[in-house]
Simulated scan of single mutants.
Amino acid sequence: MNEMASNPMPSSEDVLQPEYRFDYPKAKPNRFAVGNDVKKLKVVVLDDDVAQVFTTPEAVNKALRAFIEAMPQPQT
């Protein structure tokens, strides 16, 4: 009976070469991915003290919408 060797631990030779490392700043969106019907999200990082008050995205959006309503509107 042939026994297959278990997966050996990766050696230092198995590390990716520099030419295969992904350069995130040079990344471009996938032009073949579904585009218009996908809701695009914006990610904002809150400070810890603010995140303790606004624990859900809905709470943050509600407070920001109230703030926008209270702001003076620009004269056109």
Rank of each mutant, 00 (worst) to 15 (best):
P29W: 00
N30R: 06
K39M: 05
R21V: 15
R31P: 07
A33R: 03
R31L: 10
P10R: 02
D23K: 03
F32D: 15
E19D: 10
F32Y: 13
P18T: 06
R21W: 13
V38H: 04
N30W: 03
L16Y: 09
V43D: 01
N7T: 12
K26V: 08
P25V: 00
Y24L: 13
Y24V: 15
N30Q: 03
V15G: 07
Y24I: 14
F32M: 12
G35V: 04
R31M: 09
D14R: 00
A33K: 02
S6C: 14
V38N: 03
V34M: 06
N36K: 14
E19Q: 10
E13Q: 10
V34W: 01
F32K: 14
F32L: 14
M9K: 14
R21Q: 15
Q17R: 13
Y24A: 14
K28L: 06
Y24H: 11
V34T: 12
E13Y: 06
L41V: 11
D14K: 00
D14E: 01
Y20L: 14
D14M: 00
P8Y: 04
R31W: 05
V43W: 03
K42A: 08
Q17M: 08
F32W: 10
V15T: 12
E19T: 07
N30G: 03
K26T: 13
Y20K: 15
P18W: 02
F32T: 13
P29A: 03
R21D: 12
N7L: 11
N36C: 10
L41Y: 10
D23L: 01
D37L: 01
V34A: 10
K39G: 02
P10W: 00
K26I: 07
S11M: 03
V15D: 09
S6F: 15
N7D: 11
E13M: 05
